[in-house]
Amino acid sequence: MKNRVFQVILACSLFTVFSSVSMASEVVLTPFGQSPDAMMVKVVLKKLGVNARLEKLLEADGFQEEKVLITVVAGSSKGLGEAGIDKDAEITRMKSVADVAKAKGMKVLVMHIGGKGRRGTLTDMFIVEAVPMADKLIVVEGGNYDGLFTRLVEGTDLEILPANSVRETTEPLQMVLTEWGVVEQ
């Protein structure tokens, strides 16, 4: 009898835990610049209970009924080389992916998580293209050290959601994904 009661309590607890998080892959994740940063965001999302699909070279016809597109901006020459594309092809890819996402009514979250260390000519080129795609924007401290993101959101409704570190992006991510119905409160 005791065992039975315990099982019921355990089942109820597990149901409670899982009902507060996303069960299906409602988020698709792709890097903008082919750095490994998108993989880090996947780990953070996992901690939030969000099962995101990571596609390094997501194309416009590659969506699977997801609600949210997250793109993590950071240029990596090594990553681009490994992916076999150049910076112009990467920008073209992301523009068409974002266009289709918008047309499908998806939300687009742009993230820059590498701080000052992940800025530079290549990354800045991608940032300039990425910010106008965003419905929400998360920037880890140091990434906006020179006010680039501030200038890019000037005159728009877009707000920069800050985080102190990659680990601490859980807070703004949870807020955004809750607002977009991916994570239940």
């Binding site: 993989m39 880090m40 780990v43 953070v44 701080g115 880890v140 401290e141 140091g142 990659v166 680990r167």
Partner: peptide, 25 residues
């Protein structure tokens, strides 16, 4: 950040709860 993939695979205990150490930490 640059070595995160290899660090998380080989020596996760070196990381900050699985994530790269942030400047100032």
């Amino acid at each position: 950040m640059d070595r995160w993939e290899i660090l998380s695979e080989k020596t996760p205990g070196f990381l900050d709860d699985g994530m790269p150490w942030a400047a100032g930490a």
